[in-house]
């Protein structure tokens, strides 16, 4: 009897936790959707800001966020994957490797504004890329690098050793084994890491504040050295620097909604890829 009560209490607590979490999630989505939906229209998505940012659309910010996010993935994915392969397949023990692991874990805990300042000092000033898509993408890339590395490492670790042994037994070299046997099996896990990173890269404000974002720009970026408007920064700018809060707050909520939808869209592409590769390779 006593055990049953304990079990009942335990289950109730867990159910309550799930319900509370869901309530938060649903209320956030409801709040943003209810305040943002009224301004969303085809024109809002495709035109530039008008009348001192109180009318028109946010197309440059959408495009900018897209560029920055894709840029960050282009930099972080190959680098992160190579790093994970090295740490997991070639050199998984030893003092130096432990130091590297520790550094990566620490990097994951660095506040995003610190990455912003780093990007400003290194990419914008030292390398002279200026305030640009390139600087912003590199900064965001470094920001998501730890997540990509640890997800890739977990995925590589989960690949059964027998797959490697089978490949070696067929006479494959270590590189061939990694490329043709290990990585394809690990792709679902790597994709999960990328999915989580995309959300973070698209939504961060601090790292692009000093490295990529412009308060206002009409045209679309014509090169990787152009500045861009970006959705998270646009929300920040409208809420802090706008002179007409009545009209601009609504636009900010509209941007928040678009940002949510973009993250969901990119994520679903990654999920689709994960499922496709997942079904054909994993044993």
């Amino acid at each position: 009897m006593k055990n049953k009560i304990t079990q009942f209490l335990g289950f109730s607590l867990m159910t309550a936790s799930v319900v509370i979490t869901l309530i938060f999630l649903i209320s956030i989505i409801y709040l943003i959707a209810s305040k943002g939906l009224p301004v969303i229209s085809w024109e809002f998505l495709t035109s530039v800001p008008r009348k001192g940012m109180t009318a028109g659309g946010v197309a440059p910010a959408i495009i900018g966020t897209f560029y920055l996010t894709v840029g960050a993935i282009i930099f972080a994915l190959p680098l992160g994957l190579a790093c994970a392969v090295y740490l997991n397949e070639y050199n998984s023990k030893g003092f130096a490797v432990n130091i590297i692991r520790m550094s990566i874990n620490n990097l994951a805990g660095v506040p995003s504004v610190v990455f912003g300042l780093f990007g400003l000092a290194v990419f914008v000033k030292f390398f002279g890329f200026g305030i640009s898509v390139l600087s912003g993408s590199l900064t965001l890339g470094i920001l998501i690098l730890p997540a990509v590395i640890s997800a890739s490492q977990e995925a590589l670790m989960a690949v059964p050793y027998s797959i490697r042994e089978a490949s070696f037994a067929l006479g494959a070299t270590q590189w061939q084994t990694i490329r043709k046997a290990v990585i394809p099996s690990a792709i679902p896990g790597i994709m999960t890491g990328v999915i989580l990173s995309i959300g973070r890269a698209a939504g961060e404000t601090a790292p692009i504040l000093f490295t990529a974002a412009a308060f206002y720009k009409r045209g679309y970026p014509d090169s990787i050295f152009s500045e861009v408007m970006a959705l998270p920064y646009h929300i920040y700018a409208l809420m802090t620097e706008g002179t007409k809060p009545d009209q601009q707050t609504v636009i900010a909520y509209g941007c928040a909604l678009i940002l949510l939808v973009i993250v969901l869209m990119i994520s679903s592409i990654a999920i689709f890829l994960r499922n496709k590769y997942g079904s054909s390779y994993v044993n």
């Binding site: 009348k51 974002a213 412009a214 206002y216 720009k217 009409r218």
Partner: peptide, 21 residues
């Protein structure tokens, strides 16, 4: 600056103005 940039670009389509705070 932002409004002026907006209207200036309306009149001169070849110009590209960026405004930062």
């Amino acid at each position: 600056a932002q409004r002026a940039a907006e209207e200036y670009m309306d009149a001169n389509s070849s110009s590209d103005i960026t405004v930062r705070g």
